[in-house]
């Protein structure tokens, strides 16, 4: 039984762990904080063992809980607001990709999150709205503004479309 639970957890980590880590890293800009948030997310999963209707529901649950954990961390006065890339492996990124990443992380948090979910995770606007508990219009506006900010900063850097 214990082995079964371990296997389930391992499966879920392999399925969602890297994705959650990416999102948390983008939201928190710190490897250590991102790892903490991912770990807390799986702790919540272990603790509550929620029942999921389907795989999409499961994925949405993990994303939502990870988002909450990131918010919890950011609310804490002990959260050091910083970009701490110590220990993050950036060896595979090209210089251009690093530039894009740096500009993405300069965006305000809510734009980063929406852009990440839309472009990286491939969620639709309606799904992001449901996931984050925001109105669709709000997500659209945030996506638009985030995109504009990113476009402007990338143009400044000379990164063309």
């Amino acid at each position: 039984m214990e082995n079964e639970a371990e296997r389930e957890l391992a499966e879920r980590y392999d399925r969602y762990g890297p994705m959650l880590y990416r999102m948390c890293l983008v939201m928190l800009c710190s490897r250590q904080d991102a790892e903490d948030a991912v770990q807390e997310t799986f702790c919540a999963y272990l603790k509550h063992r929620p029942r999921f209707e389907n795989e999409e529901h499961e994925k949405a649950w993990f994303l939502r809980v990870a988002t909450n954990k990131c918010h919890d961390l950011r609310r804490s006065p002990f959260w050091k607001r910083r970009a701490d890339w110590t220990g993050v492996d950036l060896s595979e990124e090209t210089p251009e990709e690093l530039g894009v990443l740096e500009e993405l992380l300069r965006l305000p948090g809510k734009y980063r999150q929406v852009i990440h979910l839309y472009y990286i995770e491939g969620y639709k606007i309606a799904e992001i709205a449901e996931l984050l508990g925001r109105r669709e219009n709000t997500v659209k506006v945030q996506l638009h503004r985030g995109r504009e900010l990113l476009r402007l900063s990338l143009e400044e850097r000379g990164v063309q479309p």
Partner: peptide
């Protein structure tokens, strides 16, 4: 730009030790 964005974020990978920490059920 979209491809660069996907490429940049997509290559971010957690340390292998994170998997061990999660699977061991440990806290922060």
């Amino acid at each position: 730009r979209e491809e660069l964005l996907r490429g940049a974020v997509g290559k971010l990978k957690p340390e292998s030790s994170l998997r061990d920490r999660v699977l061991s059920g440990g806290r922060r």
